[in-house]
């Protein structure tokens, strides 16, 4: 399967940076838990044993420490923001780096005896594997971090939270890890659609260069407008944004999403087969 070979190849190309990203995330989060928990324990000791504040009063003032709280510290948000930024950047780099430099690898990729759309699929698969990989690692990290917190802070001073509660309390994590499986598919489905549209726009640019950049932007904007059209149109013609019932809206958006994805793949197929230029 050439597709799998290409995916493997793309993954291997990114793996070093990826491991660095994973490393930073793991180290920073675990360090964050240890540092913050120790700080808190320090505060507890200071207040209760030195200043002789009653325990209840201390808790009233400072509250218990919890993983949910920690996820909102820079130790967590920093590396996660970094990973997001890196992957967003990589969305572009995954295509453009094949053209850049004196070793124009795109020649080789386009000359592989396989359907060229496989390049498109392999790149999108790689992006998704990388994203889901980070999510998976985060899901593995949370129980571990919970354990560290449990070891450092005694029971009375911490709120015991389940993984789901930590995710909900963090606020942002529930975007990547919604608690319902269907929502997971919806969020990543929308993500998939956005990436497919972006890749199509990139292929426009790669095919027609400056003119293509314009076409790509027009394409992206059109897809966005189409996707939002049920809301925009109802708002524009004055019947109100809630003209459709939520489950109708869901089905309409689902259909529009599928149309946008299908159209983008069709256009990408055409561009990469007939219009792309080295």
């Amino acid at each position: 399967m050439n597709y799998l070979k290409l995916v493997n190849f793309e993954v291997n190309r990114f793996i070093k940076i990826y491991i660095v990203l994973l490393g930073i995330t793991m180290v920073s989060q675990i360090a964050g838990v240890i540092v913050k928990a120790n700080q808190y324990v320090g505060d507890v000791n200071q207040a209760i044993y030195e200043e002789l504040t009653p325990k209840a009063e201390f808790l009233e003032m400072y509250g218990q420490i919890s993983m949910g709280m920690l996820t909102r510290s820079m130790w967590f948000t920093g590396p996660i923001a970094l990973c997001i930024a890196a992957l967003l950047f990589y969305l572009f780099l995954i295509w453009y780096r094949d053209w850049f430099g004196k070793n124009t690898f795109i020649y080789r990729l386009l000359m592989l005896p396989t359907a060229r759309l496989n390049l498109f699929w392999s790149k999108i698969t790689t992006i998704f594997l990388m994203v889901l990989g980070l999510v998976a690692v985060q899901l593995l990290l949370l129980p571990l971090e919970n354990l560290f917190l449990r070891m450092i802070v005694s029971k009375d001073f911490r709120t015991e939270l389940s993984i789901i509660q930590i995710i909900e309390q963090s606020g942002y994590m529930s975007v990547f890890i919604p608690t319902q499986l269907l929502e997971f598919f919806i969020n990543y489905g929308i993500g998939f659609m956005v990436v497919v549209v972006l890749f199509t726009a990139i292929l426009f640019e790669r095919s027609f260069r400056f003119k293509g950049m314009f076409l790509g932007i027009v394409y992206g904007v059109s897809c966005t407008l189409l996707f939002l059209s049920p809301i925009l149109i109802t708002e524009l013609i004055g019947v109100g944004a809630n003209y459709f019932y939520p489950n109708e809206l869901f089905l309409i958006e689902l259909a529009l999403g599928l149309i946008i994805v299908a159209a983008s793949i069709y256009v990408s197929h055409f561009l990469i087969k007939r219009k792309i230029t080295v």
Binding site: V11, N12, L129, G133, V135, A136, L139, Q180
Partner: peptide, 22 residues
């Protein structure tokens, strides 16, 4: 393919376990 395999297996196990337990 071990890197690709490792990533895929970790994803399936970790995310899968999460949603099954949920």
């Amino acid at each position: 393919y071990w890197k690709l395999l490792t990533i895929s297996v970790v994803i399936v196990i970790s995310v899968g376990t999460f949603y099954i337990t949920t």
